[in-house]
Nucleic acid binder design. Structure first.
Lengths: 244, 244
DNA sequence: AGATATCGCGTTGTACACAAGAACGCCAAG
DNA sequence: CTTGGCGTTCTTGTGTACAACGCGATATCT
């Protein structure tokens, strides 16, 4: 259990901000990976005792997560992980797609060897992953890919926005994964990652952005194909790049 | 003093979330209008007694404002309103410009008569304002204009992002205003608002977005013309609209 | 039996006392 | 006079008890 590690780490003379970040990221991770699925209750006292702190810092973390739209608190009633309506989901995916393209258009940080080998690692892991695919494992790989992309976004504020939006929506398709054709899914993803690596090598920023836009679109399609709603109008492409 | 009103309102049986929003918006307003200029200290106990609550809800508001990038807290040292470096400022303006254009491209809510008369009100106020211009008054009118534009952004998440980014940067040019040629400034702004009203009437969403992008660019120019840094490279236009 | 009121329990929000930490002033040494 | 160390005093972070509130079970009335 990773909780024990966290507990001991927290006691180990960390600053308040570091503790906050660790607890925040851990709870966010659990929400993202559906360890806390939508609608499940979060007890402040339980989290407090688990992380070895009082309710106060936990409450501060939960307030932040509420501001990020991941949980909802009601006085007297339990704090719960948020659901999201299909319309909101489409809106947020549309925005994520446009932000991805925008990030490419505004210019990326130069691709380093680290970035490229990270992508190759992901490809390799995906290949091994094919033999024993799980929802959680796939979500973890997806997060790794997201972080690699995120690391190249030049504009700091945009980087934060893209990260926030990722966590607002990413947790939702994880529960759709059981209905997905694994072989097809993994093959597509590998191809996309390989293409992204090529674009990294050639520093094609706008191309990377447009590809990332398409990858997010692919993610959205899971809801269209297998989702609760059968009919989803294709999102119009808001921007068409026309510069060199 | 508006503080007295707030105090009595707070006691008046409001829910926790409402109190939070009132206090948050009030402190944010003071930061935005330079009542709390960058670098000035914020005392939790002072704010607590002013709003008639304990430190706990104040701390929750300040944590939110810190997440929004408006203040900085350090253990032991005073909480202070953040400064912003010129490079960060340029990055955030560039992002704001692109988000404005994006909002138009993604489609606006239909313009109502309310929107248009709001803009006409702003024009009228600007005309009267010409006789006795003040930094605070101009900042207030600018905020009103921002809110009118914001009200037409269709995508809820994008609306929130644009609002956040506005408050991150808007407070900074207010202190530059004393060096501005008022007559020229107001004339330009009136023309821009009138043109925006025309675009509202004809429901030219993309046009509105591009105009808003230009308005933000105009705001950025204040730093270039009168700012600390004499040389600022013109921001490249990331997107060029090419659709109908 | 069904519906409704009421009480108990658990939860979140608030207030306050205390701990941890940093800035400022003071004092002494060089 | 300058400078370095130190302590006071203020700040923010934490823990804890209590208040406000919602939900569910239970009992009672129709």
């Amino acid at each position: 259990m990773p909780e024990e590690n966290l507990l001991s780490l927290n006691l180990g003379a960390l600053s308040a901000a570091e503790r906050f970040e660790i607890i925040h990221d851990e709870i966010r991770r659990r929400i993202c990976f559906l360890i806390y699925p939508p609608g499940s209750p979060l007890s402040e006292t339980a989290l407090a005792s688990e992380f070895g702190v009082s309710r106060t810092p936990i409450r501060s973390v939960l307030a932040q997560l509420e501001a990020e739209g991941l949980i909802e608190t009601h006085h007297g009633a339990a704090t719960r992980v948020t659901y999201i309506e299909i319309q909101t989901l489409r809106d947020e995916y549309e925005l994520r797609m446009n932000l991805a393209e925008l990030a490419g258009s505004m210019g990326l940080l130069p691709a380093t060897q680290n970035h490229i080998s990270d992508l190759e690692d992901i490809c390799e892991e995906l290949t091994k992953f094919r033999k024993n695919p799980t929802s959680l494992g796939y979500a973890q790989i997806n997060l790794r890919f997201h972080n690699v992309i995120l690391g190249r976004v030049r504009n700091p504020s945009l980087r934060t926005l893209i990260d926030r939006m990722y966590f607002r929506t990413s947790r939702l398709w994880v529960e759709k994964i059981p209905h997905v054709d694994w072989d097809n899914e993994i093959t597509n993803f590998i191809n996309q990652v390989r293409l992204m690596a090529e674009m990294f090598k050639t520093n094609d920023d706008r191309g990377s952005g447009i590809l990332q836009r398409h990858i997010i679109y692919t993610s959205l399609l899971r809801f269209v194909d297998y989702g609760d709603e059968e009919e989803v109008a294709p999102l119009k492409s808001s921007y068409r790049g026309s510069q060199a």
